[in-house]
Design a protein around this nucleic acid. Structure first.
Lengths: 190, 190
DNA sequence: CGACTATTTGAAACGATTCAAACCCGGTGG
DNA sequence: CCACCGGGTTTGAATCGTTTCAAATAGTCG
């Protein structure tokens, strides 16, 4: 649905989606994974900024765009909230640029796991057992590497005791202190 | 000035600046080069989102933040403009993510040159002779590679007749058709 | 001119990718 | 109930592109 007019705005209730851009030859970058509490189709100008697909079965709450706009015109401070929202998204995008441009495979993977943990916390769940609901290929296209390298980084972190796969390997238990050390740090400092 | 309160908003009149983020160990990613017509310190919450430094001597027009806010509260449609602005910045950030995550050295360099050309056009100048006012190191930190690789990509493009350095090599003449072919394409399609 | 910095170029080393094979697992049908 | 299939994942070995380190060159400013 890339570039099409946004008929409505959606709030993610449950499940996981991927937002992505692709190059003409098919190379793909997943710009964000979206889960519980994230908004879809928030582009003000009514144009979707990227394509979105479901990673797992998803339930959404739909807000028709015209009603959305009406609310916005009535109480301007919501527009301010929206601006805050966009600014925050921009900050996240910049952090991801740092990840893509500066970090090596292991650091990317560690950062990604910490991100998933943060997302858990934001949704009111315990941060530690994170669920890797997307495929290795998706993770790869998010972190700017290949599925094989994703797999290798994961086993490397496991062998180092940074993470652990209990039973069925869709979830990972995190050792936050060790993870932070492997992640190369966040871009927020100085 | 990263993370400090933004006392004012600035409009770039002339010159070139770099906005960047760094990791604790010093690795740096330049998130954007800013030139004529760009705004600085637009973060709504009054916190700078990144550090900014001058690349060349710069002249700015200063708008005190309180006056800026006052104007915003008076005529709400400016807030809308601001939102549009943020959305556009987000789109650019996503395109840059594609560059960092998907493209090889030559494609990155070609894309960068096309970006500079677009910036020229936006400023009302002819697009073709672009000025590489920043150092190779800066370009490297913007494209997620090393200064040496930037240099090599540049000579590769020159040997292929894609670009040309007349006399003093701070400027490059572009062959747009060939450049587009080398850039890997834009992420806007389908 | 001489000193300093940025850039270019070369050669070796490294990390990620590629290609290929083996593996694990959930689902289907004999 | 087990054989088999297909997708996703893991692992291995060779290859490739970028980085790293080092040296040579060009450009700038006192």
């Amino acid at each position: 649905m890339g570039g099409e007019a946004a008929e409505a705005v959606f709030l993610v209730i449950s499940g996981m989606l991927r937002a992505f851009k692709t190059l003409p030859d098919g190379r793909r970058l997943i710009t964000a994974f979206m889960g519980e509490g994230d908004f879809l189709g928030l582009a003000v100008d009514g144009i979707y900024e990227y394509a979105v697909e479901a990673v797992t079965p998803v339930t959404l709450r739909r807000f028709p765009r015209h009603r959305f706009e009406a609310i916005l015109d009535k109480s301007p401070q919501w527009r301010n909230t929206l601006l805050h929202n966009a600014t925050e998204e921009l900050r996240l995008a910049q952090d991801h640029m740092v990840l893509l441009g500066c970090k090596n495979a292991t650091e990317k993977m560690a950062s990604f796991l910490l991100q998933l943990a943060r997302r858990n916390k934001r949704a009111g769940r315990p941060p530690s057992p994170v669920c890797l609901s997307m495929t290795r290929g998706d993770i790869a296209d998010y972190l700017g590497m290949t599925a094989e390298t994703v797999s290798r980084s994961l086993t490397f972190l496991r062998e180092d005791g940074v993470i652990d796969f209990p039973a069925h390997r869709n979830v990972a238990i995190l050792r936050f202190d060790k993870l932070a050390a492997q992640s190369g740090g966040s871009a927020l400092h100085e």
